[in-house]
Measured scan of single mutants.
Amino acid sequence: MSDQEAKPSTEDLGDKKEGEYIKLKVIGQDSSEIHFKVKMTTHLKKLKESYCQRQGVPMNSLRFLFEGQRIADNHTPKELGMEEEDVIEVYQEQTGGHSTV
């Protein structure tokens, strides 16, 4: 019986991991920090939209990076291997420009 009891508790931990929340720091170019608590399985588009709304800027005017890689709207913290207190960097999107060649 103890084996049966242990097995469901392991499964519960697996389920808990799926719905687990982590805190992420979003740091802007001006070094301002906003902290977000997100589920591991939530699409990061929600975090990006919330950040842009707080900053009063359109979402397409900023780019969000985690460990140097651009974050897509459909990425989740779990897919990117994010952990508690990880940092997302935000930069002004640069458009235009010309070749110097």
Score class of each variant (00 low, 15 high):
residue 63 R to V: 07
residue 9 S to W: 08
residue 86 D to F: 01
residue 61 S to Y: 14
residue 54 R to Y: 02
residue 3 D to G: 11
residue 89 E to P: 00
residue 57 V to C: 05
residue 4 Q to N: 14
residue 32 S to V: 15
residue 79 E to A: 07
residue 20 E to W: 06
residue 69 Q to W: 07
residue 20 E to L: 11
residue 29 Q to R: 14
residue 12 D to N: 13
residue 71 I to R: 03
residue 95 T to Q: 00
residue 57 V to Q: 06
residue 16 K to C: 08
residue 97 G to S: 03
residue 3 D to W: 06
residue 81 G to C: 13
residue 12 D to A: 13
residue 19 G to F: 15
residue 94 Q to S: 13
residue 57 V to T: 04
residue 87 V to K: 11
residue 20 E to H: 08
residue 90 V to E: 02
residue 82 M to A: 04
residue 43 H to V: 12
residue 63 R to T: 06
residue 21 Y to P: 11
residue 79 E to D: 12
residue 33 E to W: 01
residue 3 D to V: 08
residue 53 Q to T: 15
residue 53 Q to Y: 15
residue 60 N to I: 03
residue 65 L to Y: 15
residue 52 C to W: 04
residue 89 E to W: 15
residue 95 T to S: 10
residue 62 L to H: 10
residue 77 P to K: 05
residue 10 T to N: 13
residue 25 K to P: 04
residue 22 I to H: 05
residue 21 Y to R: 09
residue 25 K to Y: 02
residue 49 E to Q: 07
residue 11 E to N: 05
residue 69 Q to E: 15
residue 26 V to D: 00
residue 31 S to A: 15
residue 87 V to I: 13
residue 77 P to R: 06
residue 77 P to V: 02
residue 5 E to G: 15
residue 19 G to E: 13
residue 39 K to N: 08
residue 95 T to K: 03
residue 90 V to Q: 03
residue 27 I to M: 06
residue 53 Q to P: 10
residue 47 L to E: 03
residue 70 R to S: 14
residue 76 T to G: 05
residue 58 P to K: 12
residue 94 Q to I: 08
residue 7 K to L: 08
residue 13 L to T: 11
residue 88 I to P: 03
residue 97 G to Q: 00
residue 11 E to Y: 06
residue 83 E to F: 05
residue 30 D to C: 00
residue 90 V to D: 03
residue 15 D to P: 11
residue 47 L to C: 01
residue 40 M to I: 13
residue 43 H to W: 05
residue 88 I to D: 02
residue 22 I to Y: 00
residue 19 G to T: 15
residue 28 G to E: 05
residue 84 E to S: 13
residue 8 P to G: 08
residue 53 Q to K: 08
residue 31 S to N: 11
residue 68 G to V: 02
residue 62 L to A: 00
residue 21 Y to F: 14
residue 67 E to D: 08
residue 39 K to P: 08
residue 65 L to F: 08
residue 85 E to G: 15
residue 43 H to I: 10
residue 30 D to Q: 07
residue 87 V to N: 09
residue 14 G to C: 10
residue 67 E to L: 09
residue 51 Y to R: 05
